[in-house]
Amino acid sequence: MPDREPAGWDGPAILVEDLHKSFGEVQALRGIDFSVERGRVLGLLGPNGAGKTTAVKVLTTLLAPDRGRALVEGRDVVRSAAAVRELIGLAGQSAAIQEELTGRENLEIMARLYHLGRTEARRRAGELLALFDLADAADRPAKGYSGGMQRRLDLAASLVARPAVLFLDEPTSGLDPRSRIGMWAVIRELVAAGTTLLLTTQYLEEADELADEIVVIDHGRVIAAGTGEQLKGRIGGDVVEFVVVDPGRLAAAVDAVASLGDGEPTVEAGDGRVAIRVGSRGSESLVLTVRQLDAAGIRTEGLGIRRPSLDDVFLALTGHGAEADSAPAERRSRRRPRAEAGVTRRDGTR
């Protein structure tokens, strides 16, 4: 349980109202609102450049907002920044560990900087190393850790002072699917212990796995909020998707399948990809699609059915894909772009 149970406040653990933040010309946040009840998990979901990190930075007192306010356990992140810092833990988008130091040293120094006594710091470091499955590697320099181990160490560091409210900015970015699932398990345990958690992610699947409630942001605005189920309901469940080989037949293909989905099929003219939202009528629609396309004599590739992805959420909510953001190309290219579809499918078959 969090040690630092704050007093004097019975509102939500996190309250964000009309938050604005610009960097010169770039409006990173254009008025976002949300709240998180104590002990709950909020997933802040959005593509590159949506404003997730900016929101986390404001909430963790690293950036002052231009307008609006944010309260953590009732403390204003600007006016009572010092009090907020007593309550929070942050694991930022990159693993903020010192590679020259061992895992144990990293945690002990954090504990000392949180003003724990020497013995208490040592005890807490040992406890966290065990909890995060790092005990064997504890006395090796973190430089030699795998990406997953470094992430776990980073997460452990954010928990040293048993924060009441924890912020994780893309806790699984850069991890392979197996480490990602390991990380999910760790995060679930934390949450079970009662910590209020705000995590950001680019993957609907991840938000769905971990969060009680999801807030979707895009271009600095909240475009949807609700539980994973509610969001997927709005998207309309499963998606049948295929690529038309001959670009000249794209229109014919869309005509052939138009009646099968909920609403118009979405088309990406660039690569001839057609997606049909088919609700819960997955396999039946798949068969019908094959028949219609066959009857119309249209050749396709990669015909299949999948669970909705963040891209679909964005298509459904905004009419544009998740990649169509205004972030500079350099920022985007640091990321693995669509490879996540793999994870989506794997879990979709669960």
């Binding site: 930075k57 963790t60 007192t61 690293l62 010092a82 810092r85 007593e86 929070i88 942050l90 930022g92 988008q93 990159s94 693993a95 903020a96 560990i97 010192q98 900087l113 949180y114 003003h115 560091a157 954010s158």
Partner: peptide, 14 residues
């Protein structure tokens, strides 16, 4: 700064 270590320090009651 680049690795976020400074960000973490700044989010701590230090």
């Amino acid at each position: 700064m680049q690795r976020g270590v400074i960000d973490r320090f700044r989010s701590m009651p230090m």
